[in-house]
Design a protein around this nucleic acid. Structure first.
Lengths: 349, 349
DNA sequence: GGTTAGCAGTCGGCGTCGTGGAGTGCTAAT
DNA sequence: ATTAGCACTCCACGACGCCGACTGCTAACC
């Protein structure tokens, strides 16, 4: 039971829902008469005014100026989200779009994230963010060494969940592709399935025996470490234009501010990693993020993938006045859809 | 010899240079008195006014309204660029920044492009774009097959210049990692160094002999085809926030327009691929792009890499009022710097 | 007590007006 | 060809006033 349900009688709860719903649609402060007209509540505007005064008292709505309608505060959106959250499925139309956007990319996990971000941002007309699935503990699946020239090779590292990293490794001595291939085979035999920590444990003893192998392994562990550290893999961001067409960004300063929020890694990184906890959809409204930068924005995110194995994040960012019903159901559906794809990577069909 | 140098005597040329330079700095229509004060020309404002009337007649400048100063037209920027182009080097400070931004990424061509875009956008306070180097004819260097589960493998394709592609390949039959490795070795022996067309020529005869191999080769050629077709590889775009802080984007509509230009692939793709011809820096000013969308923007780009082998693009996008001197020298320097890195991939040190 | 009609009062949005000042174009003199 | 002088243009900006939308309050009503 939320705070609102104890504080407010049923009529005031509906009223608050109407206010939030109308404001989400129109972006205009909502007036008592408008509510009376739009939603056939069985009371007069005067009564609604009294109730709205109460809602203001309790911090659910505020007013731009003394004689203006009410605009929802964070608490009102929170109430609204709890109240309408159960509504489950996105439209068939959206489901079809998801399939047709992602299925052509079936073979490429990067493509999944890219496609998901694109279709999501089109659906909610805000910024969509998707990361590729990433294992919490990066493990080597297989590595490959490609001859570039005598003293230089490309190390290609395949990790769990088809994640790839590459890096150029220079050597002190000349070395042929055949030798590199042989080395790769040896290393694969020894190191396959290991994490950075494992590699360090296994490899230490042999150190010094082969300078080329040592160089490769050093680079290898560095890449693995980097994978574990960097929270957020490849990130696809889509739909800034959509978001800026929302009325809250009519002024140039707010538009630039929005661009900075989206461009600045650090702002989002926090929310993306720390908050995407449980399996279900998370909604972070305005000040709930405890981030000054995100004060006027809401984030709706979910993790997807196979728990314990590889997880990615998909979500949307927009002004606190966003269509939460659509956002939540779309994100939930996409997360499930992507989880299905990731799952198919692991088990036989 | 440009049109301007025949049309204009020396004083008018200097005058035009001053007008463009001042406008680039201040973004305010420049008045005759301002010029007289700022640059000690040995003539009175009245004379300058006469000259400016002439410049307007010839289409080099225009006026926002009848009694306002002059703002440069595309032709004026073109003249300015030709006139100041020879100025060669960026500041030491910039050179140092380039090194410190890119050298840590020495091993990763993706990192080069990313770092270059970041440092460039900071230098010119506009949007910077960089693509990774790409061979005009994609050729296989080496491929790798990684077992995902019995009926599915990850194909990793390494092309020239350390470019990577991955794709999941499903099979009709179960197959082990050992078999996959064997297949990869066989295919590498046969196909290494070949282009998509080559592969099709070489492979046809054996078709039908091995369903798994056929599936891999089919995917392989598809990936190669895709590489050749898609003009522009991975593209890194940086600094939209910087650009939006320029005074031309004070109004919300122009800001959203700018976001759309940057977000829309097709707009830039044309300019990036077709125009980046010769080895040196290209400047496309406003309407010269023949693109309605880019009418108010200029692009400064250069190709980098090894001609005939692998080429990438680096450039900047901004309003026609941009600091061309800085833009050109920065882009030129970065292109040379990146070319050096690409070159080192190919030849022994 | 909760609800409602009526009404005075508030405030933003918008169009009008007027003014100051920057800057031009023209003319006539040098 | 250059320049001083001057009348004229046009924008930017603040003041003003009005309209209309809404509220808060009071008093009546169920």
């Amino acid at each position: 039971m939320t705070t609102a349900t104890v504080q407010l009688n049923e009529r005031r709860q509906s009223l608050l829902e109407f206010i939030v719903g109308d404001y989400i649609q129109t972006a205009v402060p909502v007036a008592s008469q408008q509510i009376a007209k739009r939603h056939r509540l069985r009371v007069s505007p005067a009564t609604i005014r009294n109730d709205m005064a109460e809602l203001e008292e309790l911090g659910y709505i505020s007013r731009p100026h003394a004689s203006a309608g009410g605009v929802p505060a964070d608490a009102a959106y929170r109430f609204y989200v709890e109240r309408v959250a159960p509504r489950p499925r996105p439209s068939r139309r959206f489901e079809a779009r998801v399939r047709s956007a992602i299925e052509p990319e079936a073979g490429d996990p990067e493509g999944w994230a890219r496609g998901a971000a694109a279709v999501l941002s089109d659906a909610v007309l805000n910024v969509a963010i998707a990361t590729t699935p990433r294992a919490s503990h990066a493990r080597i699946k297989q590595l490959q060494l490609v001859h570039l020239h005598d003293r230089q090779a490309l190390l290609v590292l395949v990790m769990q969940e088809a994640r790839l990293r590459q890096h150029i490794v220079p050597f002190g001595e000349a070395i042929s592709q055949d030798e590199l291939t042989g080395l790769a085979v040896r290393l694969n035999a020894t190191l396959s399935g290991l994490s950075a920590a494992d590699v360090r444990r296994v490899w230490e003893p042999v150190l010094g025996y082969d300078a080329v192998a040592d160089a490769v392994v050093a680079e290898l562990t560095r890449l693995l470490d980097e994978e574990e550290r960097e929270g957020l893999a490849h990130r696809y961001t889509e739909g800034l234009g959509h978001m800026l067409s929302q009325p809250e960004f009519q002024s140039a300063v707010s538009a630039r501010e929005a661009v900075e929020v989206v461009e600045d890694d650090s702002t989002l990184r926090g929310v993306l990693s720390e908050r995407a906890g449980a399996g279900s959809v998370q909604v972070i409204i305005g000040g709930e993020s405890h981030s000054q930068q995100l004060r006027r924005y809401s984030v709706v995110i979910a993790r997807y993938g196979t728990p314990g194995q590889a997880m990615g994040v998909i979500g949307i960012l927009g002004p606190t006045r966003m269509d939460y019903v659509r956002a939540i159901s779309s994100v939930r559906y996409l997360a499930d859809f992507l989880s299905g794809l990731v799952g198919a990577l692991e088990e036989a069909p």
